[in-house]
Each structure stands twice: as C-alpha cells, then as structure tokens.
Design a protein around this nucleic acid. Structure first.
Lengths: 146, 146
DNA sequence: AGCTTATGTATGCAGTTGCATTTATTGCAT
DNA sequence: ATGCAATAAATGCAACTGCATACATAAGCT
C-alpha cells in the first residue's frame, strides 16, 4: 500500500485512460450516427434481456454494469418512459425493483447490436489477434479484484 | 470492415469497459476523500505544467487528453476561475489560446500527485508485474491508431 | 482585395450526473 | 415486539456535459 508506481505502470495507466476514452467516443459516435441511443442503454437492456425470464433486479444491473446507483435509477426512468422496460415490485424483497424488458426494448437492443458489433470489431477486435484479445482480457481480470 | 467480433473480442471489450469504470471510480474516490478535485483537473494541469515554459495551447491539451473541445474549454474556465491557470492570446495565431499554469496551479498539481500515485499503484500497478504493465501498454498502443 | 473554407474557441440550452439526503423495506439483536 | 443497522431505490438541487451553433482569426483561391 502507498508505494509509488513505476514509470511503466504510469505509462500503462495513462494509455488505458486515453485509449478507452478514444474508443468509447468512436463507438458512441457510430451509434449516434445510426440514430441510436448511447452505449449504456444497450448494456442495461442487454443485461435484463439475457437474464432468466428477461427479468433482473435493478441492483444487479448496477453491479454488472458498474454504473452508479442513481445512474441506473435514472437510466431506467428513461427506459421506462420510452416503453423499453418496466419496473415491478419484487415479491421476495419489497426493497427491490424487478426490471422486465418489453418487446420494444428487446427490439431496440437487437437493432443496436449490429451497429455496436461492427464498431467493436472495427476499432477494437480487428486490431488484435485472438491471442491478444485473450491476453488483454486476462490482464484486465487481474485488475478487477478488491 | 463490418465483420462481427468473435466472442473473445466481445469479452475483452466488455472487460475493458467494466474494469476501467471501476478503476476510475476508485481513483476518483481517493481524490475526493482527500478533498482534491477530479482526475481531469490533474491531467490538464499536468499537461500544461510539463510543457516547455509551462505553456500550452488549449487545442493541444484537448488532443493529449482526448477530452472534447467544449469540455476542455469549460474545464479551463473553472481552472481559470480558481486561479490555477491563465489564458493568454497567442502571438503566432490569434485563434489559439495559450494556457499558462500559475504557481497555485502547480502547487495543486503537486499536492494531487501523491494521492493519485498511491491510487494508481494500489488499484493498478501493484496488481501487475513490470512485464504485464508493458504488455498492457503494448496492447493498448495497438488500439490507438486511426 | 474579396470570397470561401478551415481551424480554434466560446456559449445557450436541454439533458445528465453527482452529492447528499430521504423513503421504504428488511434482518438482526435484544 | 421493538429498536437499530443494513440494503434498495428515489429525489432536490447544483454542477457538468453534449449538441448545435456562433464567433473570431487565418489560409487559400481568383
């Protein structure tokens, strides 16, 4: 704890910040150009869509996306307002919301994926070999612990 | 162009988004706890401080940090309002602003570094070997091109 | 010179985020 | 059962961001 990072570490850190900002901007731009909502809409819709019975608690969306509590809350407000998602009271624990994606929400998610996938591939996937992608995922996994 | 990414690529991409969000949150939290301003203040102050004569054009800050044009503009507004930075008209090209960091700005940058450095090390550097850090930087560099 | 395009910066406005707090429900200890 | 800490979600308000556009200067063309 509280040791100083080496120069290599600082370089890698700065690269991480810079590169990710650039990549996200590029991907978001693709979605925007296609008239689609932002990345996080996709991620939230996707989490719920992939969950068993297409239902998931709000808190779990939060955990999986690493978005802030109020960010998820308000994003779900908007998704709900646009008829993409519904909030239901949870039977087992009245503190939770259970989210259910609507047909419209699922359709939107599906329509976003080709654009999103192409952007991932163009800006990210096509620049790495399979081994490199795995290597990167491995390194990132090491950074995920407590 | 427009090929579909493989599963490994999508995994790596999602890890990248998730991990970076988590890391940034942790680092920002450290700064906040220490009563210091956000990360991007540091990055902007640092770019200007490191530049020759501690002066840099606004557009170059933008390019180096990968922040949006108006983000830099308004961040500099705040830095200027707080007496950390000054805008000067550029002699060579009247469209440019030349930014100059003040003593107060330099002092703030210096006071932020130990906190920032410790956070980088704790959440990032100490989880990677030197070779891994270099490997990560190498992979990120491959993602940086056009 | 005058016109057109390009570049760097600023800004009004609507939408979003962050902070701190509130409300609601649950579980645990007494 | 009652009180108290813990967890999930929502919200008022101030700050920030994104978009589109405006403004200012510069560079190139005729």
């Amino acid at each position: 704890m509280h040791a100083k990072p080496t120069a290599e570490v600082v370089d890698a850190w700065i690269s991480l910040l810079r590169t990710e900002r650039t990549l996200i901007d590029k991907v978001e731009e693709r979605l925007k150009r296609a008239g689609l909502p932002p990345l996080d809409w996709y991620h939230v819709l996707n989490e719920v869509d992939q969950a068993p019975k297409s239902m998931l608690r709000q808190a779990q969306v939060q955990e999986r996306t690493q978005l802030a509590q109020y960010t998820v809350c308000r994003l779900v407000d908007r998704l709900e307002r646009d008829g993409l998602m519904q909030r239901h009271p949870c039977q087992q624990d009245g503190r939770n919301n259970v989210l259910r994606i609507t047909g419209k929400g699922r359709a939107l998610r599906r329509s976003m994926w080709p654009i999103y996938a192409a952007a991932i591939d163009d800006h990210f996937g096509s620049r790495l070999t399979r081994a490199e992608a795995e290597q990167l995922a491995g390194l990132l996994a090491k950074l995920d612990g407590a």
